[in-house]
Design a protein around this nucleic acid. Structure first.
Length: 947
RNA sequence: GGGUGUGUAGCUCAGCGGGAGAGCAUUGCCUUCACACGGCAAGGGUCACAGGUUCAAUCCCUGUCACACCCA
């Protein structure tokens, strides 16, 4: 027996376990032999994360696609897993250490610290995957991967080395976005520019050997300590005479040139700008154009370093600003100050730390080269965006792609497989500080040592203690000193004088591994193939790559889509997916972005707790219209919870009326129009839902299913079936029972991708009686009712529904008490109407609450009249109804029809319309006009009869 | 400043060249033998504004206004 109420909380866990026990999520589960594949890789969520509503939408969509294709018999893989979220995870663990008053990571050392991170990951890293399970995600969790797994790490090393050898990865000194608290480079995508109330200081710099001065404007006065030039627009007449002259930098005393550069905007401020290449991206470019050597005045913690005057050293950047301003005031160098809205780069996560453009040695991917094929793939349609307009976002980012800084000054991540050593004196770059040390890249230390040995032609020593501790730096310096000395005999002789063994000091070359790790996205970019076993040539890789769809939010196009495309094409010569489905952002009811600080976050798990996973999923699907944000209103969730209940109760009703599935039931053999119709209507619904999912129009699919199940099956089929089920005609009863059970089966299948739990539960319940179920619903076949359309039955039921609705409307408008049974008299019925009335007599009587149905030749006086087709359906209510009310009702109908006729006549009377509109449109208008005219005539007759 | 998108019923949103739709909310009736998380019925819209294209515009084009987001 189906329970009286459906309680998601008590059902969902059990059903989910049943799927797991049946291994229904495993790659290829339930597939037809030799079926084509359908695969999706999850965009890997952060291992530190927990499920938010965006994940819920993202994964609901993936699960709908996966369950749908699995039911269509495809060989399906949904690959789950998480990424290691370098910065976020390291921060969490460091914070935990601090909170527990344990030693920090530097005291612990790399190895011990990493042990702690792995411990934390083991402890709470599974959170988000477990939360996905509560949503009903049918990913193959037996294949769950993590970006730091050995196999995936091997993929990272392989890719790094391959790109390095191709020259697509290089090391360079560049300005990067620097996080001065974490002391690491971060991606430009992790920076959020926030408009802030700031100030613009106008500073006066004296021109050398002159009474003249030049005024520069800046929002960051402290960076003046690192100024190396002043730029003016080359065509700015005010300053042309100064180009080539020098100013003396106040407080510092440095003599710096005035250069002409178009970067200086004559309209802005004074038209002159200070140039600080080490601390501003634009200034860096200006510096390159004018061969200005950047002066970095900050330490990695954004304190003033030794390149600035003594008085400022050790101050942090904000203290330095205050002091610089005081000191400039003192020499009267501050001309004036204005308030100004300025864009300040903040760390995107905390929005607390101001990010610093910082000049350091980092590893970069030459993304511009990799981007070319990734761009072509989309331009040439091998990978499509849905909705298509997201292509523009992809193009604009890819076309303006910058070198991708992939090194991070962290410990948690894939340590860069690069070792450094001093250069040999024979090296063309020997002694060139800008070129940095000699680099050896290898998958293992052995490989790196081998590389180094062949370079040095002598043994090497590997220093692992790090640059700061241990003797590496010392050994490096000694090696270089000897190398330098070898070039100049007198230097060597001098060296030998002080140290007889000096020459031995380059007998062993010191090398040292890069301490830094790679950007997390470097490994995420490989996800579509590294999770399938690459670089091994595995069966899974051959089978499931190329994957089919990447489902993602638009904010992630740059993060994942672009990088996965570049890497997939580079290493597998094929795009990682043929379709990118970009879904909406979930906002709150009023359209605001959800955020913890605003406190308007809707926790998907609390929705699951309150309304059930099915209602939560259905809501997200039903609201996932393309190209629009999704405002989540609780009333909608509640509405779909009601839908789940409705389905449950309908199934319960069928069970109570012994609507069992029948072995060998053939819908083609149905005789009753009611049954032929519901099969036909189910066929239509299957078509609409199928098309919706295929086209990624999940809202259309969900609404089609909703309308059919509630609006057609429950509201009409079940109601119309009631008289049959309680009637005497055993054959009709048997056919209706079997058909109802059959239709419910199709409904369960149709709804399964959206509402997996309640449908699987009902599948089980209805499987307890009648023929045994062969398998779980999750691996059952998607409905195919082709050939079961039935236009005659559709027409008859449409007529019946119109008749019943018509009578109901009149009853209400005439204030006939709901409980009162009334008589119906039919006048002027043709043969077809007569047949239809007879065939559906019981249903008409019941649904319209009639006590009798009879035929007459005249409409009884004082009747309410319903015009349907050629016939008049009269409700003789003399004495009960108010004739003036009935007249008003009919007149209103006439007015409506008149309006319509007038509109059509206007069209048909327009010569241009008749001449230019397509024939079928004109024909349609003519048909509509004649139908309307017929109806109008009947209504007028009915009105005439009233008097 | 550049780009993208959105303005349709009180609210949340579909539709997007030829008959204005749904859910919720509202109003009235109904404790009818699955379901009050229900049933039946009803009211409610110059489809932001102004031009244009077209035989025909809520839908296409241009502009204006408003809002949102992305990139500088």
């Amino acid at each position: 027996m189906i329970e009286k109420t459906y309680e998601p909380a008590s059902v969902e866990g059990r059903i989910y376990q049943a799927w797991l026990d049946a291994e229904a999520f495993a790659a290829g589960a339930g597939a037809e032999p030799g079926a084509e594949t359908f695969s999706i890789v999850i965009p890997p969520p952060n291992v530190t994360g927990s499920l938010h509503i965006g994940h819920a939408l993202n994964n609901t969509i993936q699960d709908i696609l996966i369950r749908f294709e699995r039911m269509r018999g495809k060989d399906v893989l949904w690959q789950p897993g998480t990424d290691h979220a370098g910065i976020a995870t390291q921060m969490i663990v460091e914070r935990r250490l601090m909170e527990n008053q344990q030693p920090g990571r530097r005291e612990l050392g790399r190895e011990e610290f990493l042990k702690r991170v792995w411990e934390w990951k083991a402890e709470s890293g599974g959170t988000i995957m477990n939360q996905l399970k509560r949503l009903g995600a049918s990913a193959d969790f037996s294949r769950e991967r993590f970006t730091m797994d050995e196999g995936l790490s091997e993929a990272v090393r392989e890719v790094f080395i391959a790109l390095y050898r191709k020259g697509l990865i290089y090391r360079a000194k560049r300005l990067v976005n620097w996080h001065p608290v974490l002391e690491t480079a971060i991606s430009d995508l992790e920076v959020e520019n926030i408009e802030t109330d700031g100030k613009m200081w106008h500073l006066r710099y004296p021109v050398e050997n002159s009474e003249d001065h030049i005024v520069v404007a800046t929002t960051r006065p402290e960076t003046m300590l690192g100024d190396v030039a002043v730029a003016v627009h080359p065509e700015d007449e005010r300053y042309q005479h100064l180009i080539g002259k020098y100013v003396i930098l106040p407080l510092v005393g440095r003599r710096i040139p005035i250069v002409g550069d178009e970067y200086a905007d004559p309209e802005l401020g004074s038209g002159a700008v200070k140039i600080t290449p080490a601390h501003d991206f634009n200034d860096f470019e200006v510096g390159l154009r004018h061969n200005l050597r950047p002066i970095n005045i900050f330490t990695t913690a954004a304190r003033i370093n030794g390149y600035a005057p003594k008085d400022y050293r050790g101050l942090d950047r904000f203290e330095a600003r205050a002091k610089v301003l005081v000191d400039l005031e003192a020499i009267d160098a501050v001309m004036w100050v204005e308030d100004k809205k300025i864009m300040v780069p903040y760390d995107e996560k905390s929005k607390q730390v101001v990010i610093e453009p910082f000049l350091t040695d980092q590893w970069f991917v030459n993304a511009e080269v990799l981007a070319q094929r990734a761009l072509a793939a989309v331009r040439e349609g091998r990978t499509k965006f849905v909705p298509q307009n997201w292509e523009n976002t992809y193009f604009s980012w890819m076309e303006n792609i910058k070198p991708w800084c992939i090194s991070r000054q962290l410990w948690w991540g894939h340590q860069i497989p690069a070792w450094y050593g001093p250069r040999l004196s024979t090296d063309p770059d020997f002694g060139n500080a800008d070129k940095g040390p000699k680099v050896f890249v290898g998958a293992t230390e052995e490989e790196a040592i081998a590389e180094a040995k062949s370079y040095y032609g002598r043994p090497v020593t590997v220093f692992n203690q790090g640059l700061t501790s241990g003797g590496y730096q010392e050994a490096f310096t000694q090696f270089e000193t000897v190398q330098r000395a070898r070039k100049q005999p007198e230097l060597l002789a001098k060296l030998k004088e002080t140290d007889p063994f000096a020459e031995l000091q380059d007998s062993k070359a010191p090398i040292h591994r890069d301490e830094d790790v790679l950007d997390t996205w470097f490994s995420s970019a490989l996800w579509p193939f590294s999770t399938l076993g690459w670089p091994e040539d595995t069966p899974e890789l051959r089978k499931y790559y190329q994957t089919d769809v990447l489902v993602t939010g638009f904010d992630i196009i740059f993060f994942w889509v672009a990088r996965m495309m570049m890497m997939g094409i580079e290493f597998l010569d094929e795009e990682p997916f043929h379709t990118v489905y970009v879904h909406a952002l979930v906002r709150d009811e009023h359209g605001a972005k959800m955020s913890k600080t605003k406190g308007n976050v809707i926790d998907p798990l609390s929705l699951v707790d309150g309304y059930g996973a099915d209602a939560t999923r259905f809501t997200l699907a039903a609201m996932a219209a393309q190209g629009r944000d999704l405002r989540l209103a609780m009333s909608r969730v509640e509405g779909y919870r009601n839908f789940v209940t409705k389905l449950w109760n309908a199934a319960r009703f069928l069970e109570m009326n012994e609507c069992r599935r029948v072995e060998g039931y053939d819908p083609r053999a149905n005789t009753l129009a009611l049954n032929r119709w519901i099969v036909s209507a189910t066929h239509r619904a299957v078509g609409a839902v199928t098309k919706g999912i295929e086209d990624f129009k999940f809202n259309e699919a969900a609404n089609a299913a909703y309308d059919f199940v509630w609006g057609v099956f429950c509201d009409w089929y079940v109601e119309l079936a009631k008289p049959v089920l309680t009637g005497e005609d055993e054959a009709a009863k048997a056919e209706t029972r079997a058909t109802a059970a059959f239709a419910l089966d199709q409904i369960l299948k149709l709804l399964h991708p959206f509402m997996p739990f309640v449908t699987e539960e009902l599948w089980g319940e209805t499987g307890k009686i009648g023929p045994a179920r062969e398998k779980l619903l999750i691996v059952s076949r998607w409905p195919d009712l082709s050939g079961l359309e039935d236009a005659d039955a559709d027409a008859e039921m449409d007529w019946l529904i119109q008749l019943v609705s018509g009578i109901r409307s009149v009853r209400t408008e005439m204030n006939v008490p709901a409980g009162a049974k009334i008589a119906l008299q039919i006048i002027g019925a043709g043969e077809e109407t007569g047949t239809r009335v007879e065939a559906n007599l019981a249903a008409i009587e019941r649904l319209a609450r009639l006590e009798s149905v009879s035929y007459g030749s005249e409409v009884p006086a004082g009747s309410a009249q319903i015009i349907l087709g050629e016939a008049v359906f009269a409700l003789p209510l003399a004495g009960v109804i108010d004739l003036s009310v009935e007249r008003a009702r009919l007149e209103k109908d006439v007015a409506k029809i008149d309006d319509e006729i007038a509109k059509i006549d206007k069209k048909l009377g327009n010569e241009q319309f008749v001449a230019k509109a397509p024939e079928e449109v004109i024909e349609e208008q003519r048909t509509r006009r004649s139908d309307a005219a017929d109806r109008r005539k009947k209504l007028l007759e009915a009105l005439a009869r009233l008097t």
